[in-house]
């Protein structure tokens, strides 16, 4: 058994029109594969990153999101999800 670790990172949302449903869906699907508890935060609001229902309530405009993971695979989860979001949301 590995120890529970906490890991977090900041993800920029650079697209002018902000977040769309599709990248969110991709994020949620990927997040579901990790054991760790995964949280997305923005402007004082925290939501479960494994739920599209919750993720869609985050204000979706431009600006950073914070991803936080607690659990045995926290590091991997943060790495995988931030990589994914960078690709989906960066630039444009």
């Amino acid at each position: 058994m590995r120890n529970t670790v906490r890991s977090s990172t900041e993800i920029p949302v650079d697209k002018d029109d902000g977040l769309h449903l599709r990248p969110m869906q991709v994020l949620v699907e990927k997040a579901a594969g990790f054991e760790s508890k995964l949280t997305l935060a923005r402007g004082g609001k925290l939501v479960d990153a494994k739920s599209i229902f919750e993720v869609m309530t985050l204000a979706a405009e431009k600006g950073p999101l914070v991803l936080q993971a607690d659990g045995s695979d926290a590091d991997e989860a943060v790495r995988a999800l931030s990589g994914l979001l960078d690709k989906e949301l960066g630039g444009g």
Binding site: V28, E29, K50, S51, I52, F53, E54
Partner: peptide
Amino acid sequence: IRMLDDRSL
């Protein structure tokens, strides 16, 4: 489908 299937919902 993803929304309907959502655990939090």
